[in-house]
Design a protein around this nucleic acid. Structure first.
Lengths: 156, 156
DNA sequence: CAAGACCTATAGTAACGGCTATATATGCTC
DNA sequence: GAGCATATATAGCCGTTACTATAGGTCTTG
């Protein structure tokens, strides 16, 4: 314990340190999986709309350099989410496809929700990109409820 | 241009690459400022509720080691957000105080909004921690509207 | 089938945010 | 005021995600 917590209550109003720290830890963890989800989702989009997912295309979409993509793909491959066929593009494994599906559904719900709330389509799209990774199942369910019946949230 | 975009339209349905990349860039930027905001907000909480903001206390709250905090504080200090008085704690500059105020207001709005939407208080708290940094002014305004008049979003 | 275009891989660097271990400074207590 | 507990600083490490520069494959095309 630190001196201040001994001498006097450090924070009569703040939540307890342990759960606060847990919250931050969770946010940090989310940050790590964000990138993976972005990649998988993007690759799925390419495969379904264009037929091929190439490093250079992914790099352009994400606004990063090609070697950055190459390194990330190594990671995705190690985790069993994708298969790389040299000069023939990137393909998703079953696991990768499942993750892409989940991620995209969540993304779509968040974006639709924001739009339903009255946010402009452009902002909804942009904000959804950042928000989607931090939305729990419970919150996602609330978003869904609102989309179906706006103004009729779960509160009775 | 990549080969695939020459040979055939890479993505008839996907949004254009430039704005997509811009969205990702924005999310990446947000990730960078997240930590700063968390620190400043936390320091403000300590100063107001306990009187003192110490490295060890901050470390405990955030769930990281003290040297990690020390390094971040150097950064905050470099950016003119805080003043460090050795063994007397951390203090906010005017700029730091302003940032803390903005951040906390936003945080509070997000959390209140989620609760108003029917999300449990615990989840609202946890999710707000991650979401707050990715909410634009426009979305924040929509959240505020909903809090005041739930079910009466801006749509006519 | 050789040349050039294009895609991918690799090397080396940087910034950031973590960590442990350890040194140093301060304040409290006796 | 000396010693000890506590707070802070520093050193050195690691993993991640980005970058540039460049080397090396592959494919297409003349």
């Amino acid at each position: 314990m630190t001196r201040s917590t001994v001498g006097k209550p450090a924070s009569p109003v703040m939540m307890d340190a342990k759960s606060h720290a847990a919250g931050f830890r969770k946010a940090r963890d989310a940050r790590r999986s964000e990138l993976i989800e972005d990649y998988v989702e993007l690759i799925a989009d390419f495969l379904e709309t264009g037929g091929e997912a190439r490093q250079v295309d992914i790099a352009e979409r994400l606004g990063v350099a090609q070697p950055t993509v190459a390194k990330m793909l190594t990671r995705l491959s190690d985790e069993g989410l994708i298969v790389r066929r040299r000069y023939r593009g990137i393909f998703l494994t079953d696991e990768g496809r499942a993750l892409a599906k989940r991620t995209r559904e969540r993304h779509h719900i968040v974006e639709t929700f924001l739009a339903a709330l009255g946010v402009s389509p452009e902002t909804a799209r942009t904000d959804a990109e950042g928000i989607e990774h931090h939305v729990s199942e419970e919150t996602l369910a609330a978003f869904k409820r609102f989309i179906v019946r706006p103004g009729n949230s779960s509160r009775e």
